[in-house]
């Protein structure tokens, strides 16, 4: 049903190829193809409009008019622009305080609990003393799930199976960490919708009661147009520090990454690439740009240009 983005870009290149100058009109036609492609890659449609308008100006601005291969040059500009929009260097998380507190939040099923385990695993391997706090008091077996992961990676999990108060569990976990000499507490929270006022209030309360030095918003890379609404609300409520993109071991283009970056201007700090505790990676904007654009061959083509 969908042309691959690769095809679209190639088509866009073909439109330009052989023409020694790029006119306003064929740049418009090409940016239109790119915009369609971005929307098909789940980039928010408003964000896609903004980006392609910018790219169009750049394309007309640069010496592309006299380039030998204007098509390649155009693709290169698009790729560079997306890379720049997603931020330069990979950014580290803030680990401050005694203990340092890292709060994990996001929609249902996005991968928070799995990521909490992975982050604990990574920090432990760096020689740090970590505690996991099980603050999802709603989802059936959520505490058990975190406990199983904790056991797998050899990290203690603080939980209060009978408590109905996520805020006090979080506070008690921090106190427990202090007492037992743990330097970092990773707080797993229940999944919640941005429109669920009671639940958003809860996570705000958790934040103000334990003062995390890092708040991470976890997003499923398969998310569509709604990613911007969710990211916006979570950011308004929590002013989070970074984004975690999950399930990138699949074939989703992950356009949500670009939308979120544009809307809330927060860096993507980690990517999750599997169900195993080791499947955690740093984020590379250029790779993400290639992925959104569906560029395998096109990229190498660009590098030769």
């Amino acid at each position: 049903m969908f042309e691959s983005l690769q095809d679209k870009l190639n088509k866009a290149i073909r439109t330009l190829k052989g023409k020694d100058r790029i006119s306003d009109i064929n740049v418009a036609a090409t940016t239109k193809e790119v915009r369609r492609a971005l929307v098909d890659a789940d980039v928010n449609f408003k964000v896609a409009k903004e980006i392609t308008d910018k790219i169009r100006e750049k394309a007309l601005d640069q010496k592309i008019l006299i380039a030998v291969e204007p098509g390649q040059m155009f693709v290169k500009i698009v790729h560079e622009e997306l890379t720049a929009l997603m931020g330069g260097q990979a950014e580290a998380i803030n680990i401050k305080g005694d203990p340092a507190v890292i709060l994990i939040a996001g929609l249902q099923g996005s991968g928070k609990t799995t990521f909490s385990g992975k982050l604990a695993h990574m920090l432990k391997r760096q020689g740090r003393q970590v505690l996991l706090a099980a603050c999802d008091i709603y989802r059936p077996a959520a505490i058990d799930q975190l406990k199983v992961l904790g056991e797998q990676i050899g990290v203690e999990v603080y939980s209060e199976p009978d408590s109905k108060n996520a805020v006090s569990i979080a506070q008690n976990a921090v106190a427990h960490a202090k007492k037992s000499g743990k330097k970092i507490v990773i707080v797993d929270t229940a999944g919640r919708l941005a429109v669920d006022e009671v639940m958003m209030q809860e996570v705000e309360n958790i934040k103000s009661s334990i003062k995390p030095s890092e708040i991470l918003f976890v997003v499923d890379s398969m998310t569509g147009q709604d990613a911007v609404n969710t990211a916006k609300t979570f950011n308004e409520r929590l002013n989070f520090d970074g984004v975690v993109l999950t399930k990138l071991d699949g074939d989703a283009r992950g356009g949500a990454a670009l939308s979120i970056r544009q809307i809330v201007d927060k860096p993507i700090k980690y990517i999750s690439t599997g169900e195993k505790m080791e499947a955690l990676d740093s984020f590379y904007p250029d790779r993400m740009a290639s992925r959104i654009l569906g560029m395998g061959d096109v990229l190498s083509l660009v590098e030769r240009a």
């Binding site: 049903m1 098909d40 099923g109 919708l193 941005a194 398969m222 074939d251 989703a252 283009r253």
Partner: peptide, 28 residues
């Protein structure tokens, strides 16, 4: 988003999907 189309295609190939359930429509 659009990845759901590929999910439908691939799961249908593997198991002859006969019906769909769409979750989390209580959000936006």
């Amino acid at each position: 988003g659009q990845n759901a189309v590929i999910q439908a295609r691939e799961f249908t190939k593997a198991t002859d999907v006969t019906a769909l359930a769409i979750t989390k429509l209580d959000g936006t």
